[in-house]
Design a protein around this nucleic acid. Structure first.
Lengths: 108, 108
DNA sequence: AAACTACATTCAAACATTAGAATATTCAAT
DNA sequence: ATTGAATATTCTAATGTTTGAATGTAGTTT
């Protein structure tokens, strides 16, 4: 496994976190597993679109799922994901406080 | 500032980290500031493209720069960025070990 | 087995990102 | 003022991402 490949995989994980809805999913899974239905109710998103995001996160190893009857439960694959997200949010908040970042509706 | 906006800004930071060359830049800046020239030499990348990446990282508050004569020095804006990257790399490595992720040339 | 519930997949249009090529800017030295 | 060195910007083609709409699948109930 080359350094290059590691950087690509690492970037691929970041890419998976680089979406507001997916970050919100992570927040909802922070305290334990949830079904797709629960997530759909808790979030402002269509079931189909939620499923798309979950599929991507599953592919990248961010979440894992298990079926129980009709329901499918999702959970984070690794608690370090929460830590990483928290750290990035801290960076964000500190940048906001120091006025280092203009709030340009997020994507400029 | 709404939750939504925070998720968007957070996603925007992740997006900025979601590129192999930019992650490599972060690695090179891990132990202190470097000039654009030093980075260009250390990496397999054109000066123009490096400059594009640095401009993006500057906009998002990931790096800051200062000029000294002809050279421009870049450094990470916040050491927590290193911590966050390290955590994500740990998640990646643990996923690889558990075989939870297929190495599909990174982007599938 | 038909109908239902919960979830997933596929397709396509809109939109965003990437990197090379060319060009511009900034500062320093002469 | 010109030249040279270091870095930045602009443009553009190729590629990747996102989302709604439509449809598919797996398990359950009757």
């Amino acid at each position: 496994m080359s350094e290059q490949q590691l950087y690509e995989l690492h970037a691929s994980i970041c890419q998976t976190l680089a979406n507001p809805k997916r970050l919100e999913i992570i927040t909802h899974l922070r305290d334990g597993e949830k079904t797709v239905g629960e997530l759909t109710e808790a979030m402002q998103i269509s079931q189909a679109n939620l499923s798309q995001h979950l599929a991507l996160m599953r592919q990248k190893g961010i979440v894992v799922s298990r079926r129980e009857g009709l329901n499918i439960y999702y959970r984070l694959s690794n608690p370090k994901i929460i830590k990483a997200c928290d750290l990035m949010r801290q960076v964000l908040l500190e940048n906001l406080e120091s006025g280092a970042v203009l709030v340009e509706t997020a994507r400029a």
